[in-house]
Structure formats: structure tokens, C-alpha cells
């Protein structure tokens, strides 16, 4: 069953345009001019219950506008969103009971209250049954190592502590759908790891549906099998991560361990050197998969110098995404995406 269904969803904002300076301000007062800007433009997708999906795009691509429509904060201009079969705006309260949201840097906890008191209040707001609440609190405390933190006011917490607190508060009412906006931004690796582990466990145990928007591709690779990429309000990719890697990993790296000297080598077309380290006797090349193949590059190099070993790097998601963002692959995706 689909937990989230989005059909042809659009959100158009009306922005008033002002000429610079005092004259502009006066003119705007008497004859305001508006410009329509589609923040989200005809997006459709469906997410199954229990799925974890990465929702990515550059800043201003329309990610948070989409999330705001899915949580009922914003009303779509056209199209439809359904979460657990409901219209999230019209049935806002019913929807709110079953979803949880982490808004990146904005805390939903009370700044001056100790964490345990914030959690108690959140529990009361969501009417979590007291026995169940205690059980979950105990479980979360262990998973997120909240023990000592429960007595600390939010204002005295570090970034990582805050995020752990935030996650506990977001999941304490066992939402069926969770939106996580940048849950690991600015955190060190150990905390990141713990948070990812916690999200995974929640998903496993309760079949929680997770929509994850992030700039950290580590999060995506770790948690999601599927990604949705949007750019300028339009959906440009929806599918498994593995497919992107295969299809759009245009460049791959190949590293040779050389026997002796690694001087000048005539490279086959489509390949270029990335780095040569004669002391470590290593030669790294990058080649364009659409022009040549790994075996052709390898054969060419081995013809010229002595090679002890060579390795082929897996295509790195972040470099692929970077290419997508920079627009290099936009046409290619448009061609290759099944309509």
C-alpha cells in the first residue's frame, strides 16, 4: 500500500517585484507587480509503506516546499498529495497525529526546558498512552544514549545532542510517516552513525516510512535504496540508487600499481591522469565510460608499462549528484528516464 501519493503536485508563489530604491518602493505601493514562481512544478511519485526514500536537490529546488505540502503546512496550487490516504491540509490534525517532522536546524523543543520535560509535553500533545510512553522513552534513551541528557535544557546542548533529542521527540508518538530534513548536518561521524542506525532500526521495527532530504549522500547511501531528485521544481529522477550509479556514473577511476618507473604514458582517447605518485608507484586515471571501457584503458596502459595490480573504483554517488546538479546530465536523464 502506498503511504504517500503525490500526483501532479505544484506550488506557485506570487512574488511582488520591486524596483530598487525609493522610487521603486513608491511605485510598488501604487501599482504592485507580481511574478509567479513555481517552486514545485507538476511532481508525481508514490512511496510505499515502510520505504525509505532520499529526496534530494540543490537549495531552492523545491524540497522543503514539497515537504510543507505533505505535512499540510502549505496548500498545493494544483495537483494532489495524499498521506496515509488523507489530504494533509484539509485533514491536518488527523494527519499530524501520524506523521513526524524534523525541520533541520529549527528545534521543536522548548529552549529552556530540560529534555525530559519537553518530551513529556510532546507526549501529552500527541496523547501517547503513558505506559507506552515510558516504554518508548526507555528504548530511545538507550538507542540514542540520552540518559544524562534528559535533565539538560535544550539551550545547553551541543548540535549532536540537540539532533538526538529532536529525533526522540519526533518519534515518541510512533508516527507512520517521518520527514527528516537534514538530520545529520554539521554532526561528527560517530553521531551521524548513531542517528542513521536509529532511523534504520525504527524503520525495521515499525515499518516507518521515511522521506529524507539531505545534502549528505552518506545518509542516502546508508539508508535509502531509492532516491528522488528534483531540480528547479521538476522531478528529474526517481529510481534506485544503483541505477544512477550504473547509468550516470559517466566517469570512473582506475588505479594502477606499477612495477618500476611510471613516466609518460600515451593514454587512450577518453582517459586522463588524475594523479601519479612515483614514490608509491601509483598511477590513477579517470576515463569517460561513454567513450571507452575499463578493459581498453587497462590494456593500453599495460602495453606500455609494467603493472603489478590495478583496481577499479566504484562510481561515487556524490560526484554523480554533483554532475546532475551542475546540469551536465540533465538532458541525458531526460533521454534515458523511462517516461
Amino acid at each position: 500500500m502506498a503511504a504517500i501519493e503525490v500526483e501532479n503536485l505544484s506550488k506557485v508563489f506570487r512574488i511582488s517585484k520591486k524596483d530598487p530604491g525609493l522610487g521603486g518602493a513608491v511605485k510598488a505601493l501604487f501599482g504592485p507587480r507580481y511574478e509567479d514562481k513555481a517552486a514545485v512544478n507538476g511532481i508525481s511519485f508514490a512511496v510505499n509503506a515502510g520505504e525509505m526514500v532520499g529526496y534530494i536537490g540543490v537549495n531552492g529546488a523545491g524540497k522543503s516546499t514539497t515537504i510543507k505540502m505533505l505535512t499540510g503546512i502549505l496548500l498545493p496550487t494544483s495537483g494532489q498529495a495524499r498521506v496515509l490516504g488523507r489530504d494533509p491540509h484539509r485533514q491536518r490534525v488527523a494527519n499530524a497525529r501520524e506523521v513526524g517532522v524534523v525541520f533541520g536546524q529549527r528545534s521543536q523543543l522548548w529552549w529552556d526546558l530540560a529534555l525530559i520535560e519537553s518530551l513529556d509535553l510532546v507526549g501529552k500533545i500527541y496523547e501517547v498512552e503513558p505506559a507506552r510512553y515510558r516504554q518508548l522513552l526507555h528504548q530511545f534513551s538507550e538507542m540514542l544514549e540520552l540518559g544524562e541528557l534528559l535533565r539538560v535544557p535544550i539551550r545547553n546542548m551541543s548540535l549532536g545532542q540537540k539532533m538526538r533529542a529532536e529525533l526522540a521527540a519526533t518519534l515518541i508518538h510512533e508516527p507512520k510517516v517521518v520527514y527528516l530534513d537534514e538530520p545529520t548536518i554539521g554532526l561528527d561521524l560517530i553521531v551521524k552513525e548513531r542517528i542513521r542506525e536509529f532511523i534504520k532500526q525504527q524503520n525495521r521495527e515499525r515499518q516507518t516510512t521515511v522521506i529524507l532530504t539531505t545534502h549528505d549522500l552518506g545518509d542516502i547511501e546508508e539508508l535509502c535504496r531509492r532516491v528522488i531528485i528534483i531540480d528547479a521544481g521538476k522531478l528529474i529522477y526517481d529510481g534506485p540508487i544503483s541505477t544512477i550509479k550504473e547509468r550516470f556514473g559517466k566517469y570512473r577511476e582506475i588505479t594502477f600499481e606499477t612495477g618500476g618507473r611510471s613516466g609518460a604514458v600515451d593514454l587512450p582517447p577518453g582517459a586522463e591522469p588524475v594523479g601519479a605518485d612515483s614514490a608509491a608507484r601509483k598511477l590513477t586515471l579517470r576515463f569517460d565510460r561513454t567513450v571507452t571501457t575499463a578493459s581498453r584503458v587497462a590494456a593500453s596502459v599495460m602495453d606500455q608499462i609494467e603493472v603489478l595490480d590495478f583496481s577499479l573504483a566504484e562510481p561515487d554517488l556524490s560526484s554523480i549528484i554533483k554532475q546532475i546538479y551542475s546540469g551536465a546530465l540533465r538532458e541525458q536523464i531526460a533521454e534515458e528516464m523511462p517516461a
Partner: peptide, 13 residues
């Protein structure tokens, strides 16, 4: 202005 109002809208009250 801070966007904090959104928090009220995702709560079931």
C-alpha cells in the same frame, strides 16, 4: 519570520 510557526501546524492541536 523564523519559520517556527510551522511547528504549530505539524502538531495535532
Amino acid at each position: 519570520r523564523s519559520g517556527g510557526f510551522d511547528r504549530f501546524l505539524v502538531r495535532p492541536i
